[in-house]
Amino acid sequence: MIDFALILLSAVLVNNYVLTKFLGICPFLGTSAKVETAVGMSFAVMFVMTLASTASWLVQQYVLIPLDLLYLQTIFFILIIASLVQFIEMMIHKTSPVLYQGLGIFLPLITTNCAVLGVAILNVQQDQSFLSSALYGLGAAMGFALVLILFAGLRERIEHAPAPAAFKGSALALITAGMMSLAFMGFSGLVKV
């Protein structure tokens, strides 16, 4: 039980995918202009990441290893991820056309998000039980969502702040992201994983 909590904590805070491993920066910077878009994006990514990492683990255990097809790992994983993204795209288009319009190109770009593939591959590398792997995937997704929403909140607040013209926009956003990353470094060593 404690192990599971530690796995979650590690994935969300200590080894945060965006701020510690620096994966998935593209949607992190692209959809964090507004909090509503960020929330929608984070739910989409959570859905894809969790299911993708779980499905990838299952495929690894029951198809790739028994049939000795480890060289097909990347193709299989990408296939899983692409199908999931297509699925979530259709769902968002139906339930919230405004969000669909707001996310724009970033929704199909989840397919090429290195964080999603990264979670899948790192997950199978660790070679844990099914439940641990599922939790790890969920934790990574939650960490991504947490950081994305926090960053969107910060960006909204500083958007209209009286910053020097040279710093306005992406420059200030990147500096803020760097400071967030520094802050999250404070969690290192919290969990020994």
Partner: peptide, 13 residues
């Protein structure tokens, strides 16, 4: 092995 690979990939797709 190649056959297994093709079949499994095809089935999954």
């Amino acid at each position: 092995n190649l056959l297994y690979g093709l079949l499994s990939l095809g089935a999954f797709a």
